[in-house]
C-alpha cells in the first residue's frame, strides 16, 4: 500500500529511488514503484498487474474489496508519468483471469487508453490471461524481442541471456539483528532479470524458493528490493546477514 501512497502524493524522490543495473549489457533502471525503465529505448516494463483480481475472487464467492484495479492503475499512471516511455510492456498476468479484460469497468479502460495514447503498448500473455487483452489498446503477444532483450511472462529454463520475465513474483528477505524483513524485488544476475509483481494484491515468492533455482548465477545475483520510497539493493549472499 505504501507504493500507492507514494505514487499519489510525493513528487520528491530520494537519490536511491532508482537503482541502476544492466541486463545483458542493456542499461536498466529499477524504479521503487515496481517498474523497470530502459533509458536507451525509453521502454517501461511492468509485470503481473493482476488487474480485476478482487472481482475474479468475488465471482467465485470470495468477497475481497474491489479496489485493487484502481490502486494498481494509479501507481501505473504515476510511473508512466515519471518516465514518459515510448513503449510500455506489461509482462503478463495483466489480468487475474481470462474474463478480467472483458469484465473490467469502462472507467479503468479509459484510464489505460489515456496512458497508452502516443505510446506503443504491448500486452505479453501470461498463464492467467493466455488469450491476451483484445478489447484494450495495444498489441497482445506471447513473446517480444526488443531493445536487445527478450520479454516473456515465464522465465525459460534456458540460459536466459537478456531475458526479462515475471510470473514468479520474486521477493527477498533481509535478516538483520534477529529480524526478517521481506520485500518484493527485482532479481538479476546481469544476464536475466525477474520483475516484481506490480499489482497491489499480489503475493511474493522468496528467492530461495525451489521455483527460483537454476534461474540465476547466485554469486552474481542482486535483489533490488522495493522499499517505501527507495530501492534497497542487496547481494543474494548478504541477504541473511
Amino acid at each position: 500500500m505504501h507504493r500507492l501512497i507514494h505514487a499519489t502524493s510525493a513528487t520528491a524522490t530520494s537519490a536511491f529511488f532508482q537503482a541502476h543495473t544492466t541486463v545483458n549489457g542493456v542499461a536498466a533502471i529499477c524504479d521503487a514503484l515496481g517498474g523497470l525503465f530502459l533509458p536507451e529505448t525509453r521502454t517501461l516494463v511492468v509485470s503481473d498487474l493482476h488487474l480485476e483480481k478482487g472481482s475474479a475472487f468475488a465471482r467465485r464467492g470470495m468477497m475481497l474489496p474491489p479496489y485493487d484495479t484502481l490502486a494498481t492503475l494509479r501507481i501505473l499512471e504515476a510511473i508512466v508519468a515519471r518516465h514518459d516511455p515510448a513503449t510500455v510492456i506489461s509482462l503478463g498476468d495483466n489480468f487475474h483471469d481470462r474474463r478480467g479484460s472483458a469484465a473490467m469497468p469502462e472507467t479503468f479502460r479509459q484510464m489505460i487508453a489515456l496512458m497508452a495514447r502516443g505510446r506503443d503498448w504491448i500486452w505479453i500473455n501470461g498463464n492467467h490471461d493466455p488469450d491476451g487483452a483484445p478489447s484494450l489498446p495495444g498489441a497482445s503477444m506471447d513473446e517480444l524481442r526488443h531493445a536487445g532483450l527478450v520479454f516473456r511472462h515465464e522465465p525459460s529454463m534456458a540460459d536466459g541471456l537478456g531475458e526479462i520475465a515475471g510470473h514468479l513474483h520474486p521477493s527477498a528477505t533481509v535478516r538483520r539483528r534477529e529480524r526478517s524483513i521481506r520485500r518484493a524485488c527485482f532479481a538479476t544476475d546481469g544476464k536475466r532479470l525477474l520483475m516484481p509483481a506490480f499489482g497491489v494484491t499480489t503475493g511474493g515468492l522468496d528467492l530461495r524458493h525451489r521455483a527460483m533455482s537454476g534461474l540465476f548465477e547466485r554469486e552474481r545475483l542482486v535483489a533490488h528490493m522495493l522499499g517505501r520510497d527507495r530501492i534497497y539493493s542487496v547481494r543474494f549472499a548478504n541477504l541473511l546477514g
Binding site: 536511491f16 533481509v174 534497497y232 539493493s233 542487496v234 547481494r235 548478504n238
Partner: peptide, 10 residues
Amino acid sequence: LLTEAADELI
C-alpha cells in the same frame, strides 16, 4: 535495517 543491508553493496 534495510538501509544497513543495502549500504553493504554500496
